[in-house]
Design a protein around this nucleic acid. Structure first.
Lengths: 206, 206, 206, 206
DNA sequence: TATGAATGAGTTTTCATTCAT
DNA sequence: TATGAATGAAAACTCATTCAT
């Protein structure tokens, strides 16, 4: 079934896309040139056009790959969890820990670039919304589970909470990007954890 | 004291800067051309260079103006508040209310653009960090006041909380940008309010 | 007879022309901007156009002034000479002495610029040729005098010698411009003097 | 060893450089536009930038080529000479003969342009000085040889004489440029020859 | 008469894209 | 299929010149 020729082409395409990603992170979608990408990928400038119709096409491919990675990261984040709430918290802790890392930084930059593209291109906007929506559904499902299991206050709106969690995480990422080491993400996580205690089912008889 | 000539020049400069802002919002810092800005401002392209040394200079001026507006908005947000915590909550509510508005959208876009510039230019990074730091100090001071007055849990790290509030607000802004009407910011605010109850001084006998 | 108004205008014109000269020396005819000239002259850019029809016109005025100064310098160079040959030699020595000076440097630069303009504009070429011709006639006349008085070999072509003297002087000027202190003009003059002995009337019985 | 691709590129580069030379001669370094050069070379303006980093770079390449040609011309000028002095005189005669030619005119113009660039740019000045120095060393060596062989007065400073010969030649070139046919270079050469007789070893019993 | 803000044509330079080899 | 030279359509920026004040 897997045509070796197709495999080769796919691998090539992915290699170029990954090279482009690195260049985009360093120079921005607009600032990057096809030549830089070609150099990084070790191919000639003309070759890129055998795999991507245009620079825009390449940009979209990179944005899509970044989104996919983002969702996958969350999905694999807390395999060992024993309860929905624990899973959420563990995944959150895991992601926040990584916030300073080079790869998180890369993804955050690409995410910002992609957001700005989406602001101007409805097609990209739909793509981005789709990926964000998928993420939101994952989180929301966990919250509903947690509510079903009595771990989380049943009066809380799961959709809104899911958005809020995502927004806060992205916001901290972005802040870290803007301020570097100045912002103490560990301390912020501690405070956030404390806040999240507020959605736990109130066990006291209040 | 006010030289009419200087006044004229300043007004002109501001007008060009404002025109540039509009074009930047629609097309991005990179995508916008000096000609578009000139057209929007109703001047010739050459004239812009009497007021700004370069496109970069214009970008910086716009970014600075946007930051200033942002801080000013917060400062004027809750003049009628009677306590630090109330002030914070009122300001937060006010800002979140505005999140869907066209002007908030404009500012959010410019903020994202500025962030990406900052990622690549240390000078811009310093400028952005300065403006974010100022904002943070304002919020942090309020939190400390609230702690002094017994409104907020004294064990919470005020700096971390300030960053967290900013990150969440920016994150929601950004989310709104990405998803338009899909995300219900009012519901998110209600959940956030609920979370923030967790930092209130615990009056029960904990 | 001298209208004070005309005097004022003439003085103004000269001041602007002199300012332009300085700027042209530093930046070249092409590199200099009208704004620089205006700044140097302490007037506004627009004002220059009341005195000169265009930048080209200003260039021509500067070139003309430079040529005039050049001829005048030669004419006043050796007032105390007692014989034509002595006059020539004294003037030569005087000019060669000045070769390293700032003012000679200025004039040499302007002369080169003017030459290049002349190469491309017949009008300027005629002007330059006229000024060079005048100079040549002055020198040639001296040579003829010297021949009449038996100081110089009568078989030498006075016109050709005049051209040669001018060419050599200009050439050394130009060399000094290209090489700065590297070239020892005093030593070159000594050798040149020695050569010029060759045109003296041969007193030995050859 | 000779890569056909490299050969092609080198030929292309040379062709563009030669086209540029022609345009520079007609319009000057400053007056020439990249578009004119492209048209002359039969390529698009953008193509030039594959071979030269900037207009300045192209200017430098042209200046260098001109200098190299100048030195080479001298070196090949008098292959059949039987003595150093004869070589010098033959080379001089040869160069002076060519002074009116179109190619000498071209080179003279480029030399003037290069001189003016050198006046304002230390880097170019160094380049020009280097090329002039090389020429001077060639001539100086010949003079020393002639002195050793008893052809030239041993009391003459060979360096100063070398500079003087170069200055005079350049000066006559420049004069021819300024005055066209008006100046009789053949007559001037005759006079110069006569002067140069003065450096010959005095055979009479002085 | 002087000013200097405005103009807009013109210049250098970049770069996505094409296409002959 | 890959290459990379060539293209040409912008884009930023400059500056001589004009003209309302």
């Amino acid at each position: 079934m897997p045509d070796p020729r197709t495999d080769y082409l796919t691998a090539r395409r992915d290699a170029i896309r990954d090279a482009a990603e690195g260049v985009f992170v360093r120079w921005g979608f607009d600032g990057a040139t096809m030549q830089q990408i070609a150099d990084e990928a070790g191919v000639s400038a003309g070759t890129i056009y055998r795999y991507f119709a245009s620079k825009d096409d390449l940009v979209r491919a990179v944005a899509r790959a970044c989104s996919a990675r983002y969702t996958a990261q969350f999905e694999s984040s807390a395999q060992t969890a024993t309860s929905p709430l624990e899973l959420l918290m563990t995944a959150g802790a895991h992601i926040w820990e990584g916030i300073g890392s080079a790869s998180a930084r890369r993804d955050a930059i690409l995410q910002l670039e992609a957001t700005l593209v989406a602001v101007r291109e409805p097609t990209s906007a739909a793509l981005l919304a789709e990926s964000m929506g998928e993420m939101r559904r994952l989180i929301e499902a966990l919250i509903r589970d947690a509510q079903t299991q009595g771990e989380v206050d049943p009066f809380i709106d799961p959709t809104a909470l899911a958005w809020l969690l995502m927004a806060t995480t992205n916001g901290v990422q972005s802040l870290a990007l803007q301020l570097g080491e100045t912002v103490d993400t560990t301390a912020a996580w501690r405070v956030f954890e404390q806040l999240l205690a507020g959605i736990r089912t109130q066990e006291d008889g209040r």
